[in-house]
């Protein structure tokens, strides 16, 4: 079972990113579940979402305490939340950032999802949409396939720019 934890702020699309990822994995023929941990806070508070992907049906409902992959959609969260908590020793981190960030040890990858969203003018209520480009980056990392990622995005969004943004992230992420 592959376990992913996504850190974002309320309203940034972390919860939707988890759903999209689960859908893409599902379209790959895998089993997948996605769920957020909601506090009662309003917009802007740190939110955690979880995704599990497996070849077998998934019966675990508890939170992910030892993720294989940590995704950080807003690196400002790293000042208040220990995003690396419990990360497996061979685990990976994917950061939404144009540059490497000090303090992220281990296998860290960077991709400027915000820049990609802005380049595609994917902005809702003043915030760039990160949930579709991140799926492209995850496809590059082999978590899901690119065709399934695109399919999932098209199932959830009608705006084709989302697919373009995902492709851009796929191209941009260096493996």
């Amino acid at each position: 079972m592959y376990e992913i934890r996504i850190h974002s702020r309320g309203g940034q699309g972390g919860v939707t990113a988890a759903k999209l990822l689960a859908l893409a994995a599902f379209r790959d023929g895998k089993h997948a579940t996605a769920f957020p941990f909601y506090g009662t806070e309003r917009r802007g508070a740190p939110v955690v979402s979880f995704v599990r992907i497996d070849d077998e049906p998934i019966k675990v409902y508890s939170q992910i305490h030892e993720p294989d992959l940590v995704i950080v959609l807003d690196t400002s969260i790293m000042d208040v939340v220990d995003v690396l908590d419990g990360l497996k020793t061979d685990g990976t981190v994917l950061l939404n950032s144009a540059h490497p960030i000090t303090g992220c040890n281990g296998a860290c990858r960077y991709v400027d999802l915000t820049g990609i969203a802005l380049a595609e003018n994917l902005v809702v209520a003043g915030s760039p949409i990160l949930n579709t480009p991140v799926i492209g980056a995850l496809a590059k990392m082999g978590i899901v396939t690119l065709p399934s990622a695109e399919k999932a995005i098209r199932e959830m969004f009608s705006d084709e720019r989302n697919v373009k943004a995902a492709r851009a992230a796929y191209e941009e992420l260096k493996i």
Partner: peptide, 12 residues
Amino acid sequence: LDGFALSHITQS
């Protein structure tokens, strides 16, 4: 159905 644990989880 369990609040959040099931109401908000995405499954097939």
